[in-house]
């Protein structure tokens, strides 16, 4: 089939970008979306032109590298699917698709469809861990974990850090990402000692990075390739209120 692409091209962080139109004349329905771009890129390279830069690595939907907007949808139209797992049979002959990078102040465009998501790392640095030095761990089965807590924690831990939630959110908020990490750790007994401080610091870090706030649109949940629930955001809010208003400053303090 034949697909027409309008792709955002931008040569560097400070460069001015614009849309460029490309025709993909012989797309197979069995191709993944990225394979279609591979074929286009090989054609561009053979012509001595710069290929379209897009991030990708595992191509199995787990590393979180890939992702861009396809016709205004993060990761494209198939639910719970990253763009690397999206196949062209989802589209039809003659479709015209607009590809844009994730857009957020905290995700500056590096090149074409590649953005800088290091803000996520800094949110984790603010407290997205359980302070356990190697070797100091107790016997694994010494702390039983309720199965439902473990399962809920896992649901949140499934986040791959792709940034689709930020990209899709009308407010460019990182609440789903941050709340997922908080829920992952705070639902486990191991995460309790640092629960309050973790919640406060990660929310503040999210603000410092310049993400927007959550107004409960739930667009993030709809495009999340791992189906992470927005109810985690409510838990984050509750934890933040508890940490900032209803606990003494030394409670659950951690190393600096």
């Amino acid at each position: 089939m034949r697909i027409k692409l309008h792709v955002w091209r931008q040569s560097g962080r400070d460069a001015k970008g614009d849309f460029e139109t490309h025709e993909c004349p012989d797309v197979s329905e069995h191709m993944s979306f990225l394979e279609m771009l591979d074929v286009l890129n090989e054609r561009l390279e053979s012509a001595g032109k710069a290929p379209i830069a897009f991030e990708h690595d595992c191509r199995e939907g787990i590393c979180g590298s890939c992702g861009f907007m396809i016709n205004g949808q993060a990761h494209g139209p198939q639910p719970r699917t990253t763009v690397c797992q999206l196949h062209m049979r989802t589209f039809k002959d003659g479709d015209e698709l607009t590809l844009e990078p994730w857009r957020a102040k905290a995700f500056p465009v590096v090149r074409d469809l590649v953005v800088d998501r290091s803000a996520f790392d800094r949110i984790i640095q603010a407290g997205g861990y359980i302070s356990t030095n190697t070797g100091s761990a107790p016997e694994a089965n010494s702390v039983p974990v309720r199965k439902d807590s473990a399962d809920k924690s896992f649901d949140a831990a499934a986040c791959i850090g792709c940034g689709a939630c930020v990209a899709m959110c009308p407010n460019a908020s990182a609440s789903l990402f941050t709340a997922a990490k908080l829920a992952h750790m705070n639902l486990l007994p191991q995460g309790q000692p640092e629960r309050l401080v973790r919640g406060e610091r990660m929310v503040v870090a999210m603000d410092v990075e310049g993400f927007g706030h959550c107004t409960n649109h739930s667009d993030c949940e709809a495009v999340c390739p791992k189906g992470i629930s927005v109810t985690n955001i409510a838990m984050m809010n509750r934890g933040f209120v508890e940490a900032t208003l209803f606990s003494s400053p030394r409670e659950g303090s951690t190393e600096d």
């Binding site: 907007m69 205004g72 949808q73 102040k105 407010n171 908020s173 310049g210 927007g212 739930s218």
Partner: peptide, 12 residues
């Protein structure tokens, strides 16, 4: 938080 908007954006 989003100084540059999308050309296309489809509500989910």
């Amino acid at each position: 938080a989003r100084p540059e908007g999308y050309r296309k954006w489809t509500a989910q």
